[in-house]
Design a protein around this nucleic acid. Structure first.
Lengths: 238, 238
DNA sequence: TGTCAACTGTCAGTGGCTGACATTAGCCTC
DNA sequence: GAGGCTAATGTCAGCCACTGACAGTTGACA
């Protein structure tokens, strides 16, 4: 039925982190490790193929063949072709949410969001590299920004994250998302700036982590001036 | 190749408005009128079926059969299953962009955006009803908000609109989008508020046009306070 | 070592979407 | 107003993402 349209329901395999399971019910048995290896291999091969030949031009069969599993197995690990693209992003976003919860309560909402993004960028490299080379992640990011079908998925994920973050912010500030528009509006403004920064970065030449950091920082710092400032009596723009 | 993923390239039939062609090369001949009728019938039947049985649960074959054309013909009018959903939205957004260009140059950017949205809502009813009943449009809106696959498409379209609007704003203010982040950031904050308002409306009970107007108005008015205001010394929230 | 359960492969089928080619039906000219 | 031109449509065959069902394989664990 749903065939082409992205799914919300995903396979019950809900491992979001990339680290070793170590904690939960399934300890690090052979089976568990094998599964993890298959999953990582699928991610790596998929992203390698996508970034090399393009997303639309790569079929699931090719990915499965590269890892030497059946097409059916691919779909047991990922609910859709899109999902494998964002597997690493999910780790990154989880880090960001954690970081946000750790911010001191007296910080202003937007400042807390800003700090959380910046801090999470600091140590995310290691987490990413446990699954794929950081450079492949950066190339993936750029591929997403230049593939309309993936941008759509990107936004859907963003908005789910937005909702989650809005609730976090509301709790921090002691207000209710149901009656007070400000948490959602603030988060919308914030994630809008992040999205735009990602887009501008994706269009530029410099593919480095430093570059996206800088651009993100600049765009975030412009939210206040852009919304509340007086544009003609310029605040200085760059 | 691209099969399931949404297409950017669309059929060369690029009639975005719903009115009679009257102006261009093809005058209102029988052929032209027939095409317009087929297109409108496809939109109407599709939205009727989607809102009644759900988007995923409705097949293109069913839509085509309802209008008594072949499946292939459907795809000659719309590049994808998604596109037919947003056919009416495209008219609405075109109205908004027009309205924005008509705002006086001395208005602050966010105020111009706000006024343009509100004004375009005023007279859009007639335009919509030339194609489908207004009530069907409202139900469609709600269906979009509750269908993840469509939300993704919704955002892709939003962001294309965002880019266009950001350029308009930049021109109004006499700045350059390439070097000054503020137009894009302001528009991102603005459309974030719009999106959130749409979402909140979609989750509520009141399906009326007045309801979405009110919610939109309230959320837009909160952008300033949410971003620049002091949340603890409350500004009053509702 | 044998049983159980998880993981995987195979197969058949659905639905979105496309290219190629044949057919129909407005339109325009003589 | 018959005939040619061409846009619009139908038919058909096929690709690819994705799914359910069933059978085979392989770790886990008594």
């Amino acid at each position: 039925m749903t065939s082409s349209t992205p799914q919300v329901t995903r396979p019950e395999t809900a491992w979001s982190g990339g680290g070793e399971p170590s904690g939960g019910t399934g300890t690090g048995g052979l089976r568990e490790r094998k599964k993890q290896r298959t999953r990582d291999a699928l991610i790596r091969s998929a992203l390698e193929l996508f970034t090399a030949h393009g997303y639309d031009e790569t079929t699931i069969d090719e990915i499965a063949e590269a890892v030497d599993v059946s097409q059916r197995t691919f779909f047991r690990y990922f609910a859709s072709k899109e999902e494998v693209v964002f597997a690493v992003h999910e780790m990154v976003e989880a880090r960001f949410a954690e970081e946000l919860e750790r911010r001191p309560a007296d910080e202003a909402p937007l400042e807390a969001l800003r700090s959380a993004v910046m801090t999470s960028w600091d140590d995310i490299g290691g987490v990413i590299q446990s699954v794929i080379p950081l450079e492949l992640h950066m190339r993936t990011y750029q591929m997403i920004e230049s593939t309309p079908a993936l941008m759509a998925a990107h936004w859907r994920r963003y908005s789910e994250l937005e909702e989650q973050i809005a609730r976090l912010v509301a709790r921090r500030e002691g207000v209710d998302v149901a009656t007070d528009p400000r948490p959602r509006v603030a988060v919308a403004a914030f994630s809008g700036a992040i999205r735009v920064a990602g887009k501008v970065w994706g269009e530029g030449e410099d593919v480095s982590v430093e570059s996206i950091r800088e651009i993100t920082e600049e765009y975030l710092s412009q939210i206040g001036p852009a919304v509340c400032g007086d544009w003609r009596g310029r605040t200085e723009s760059r």
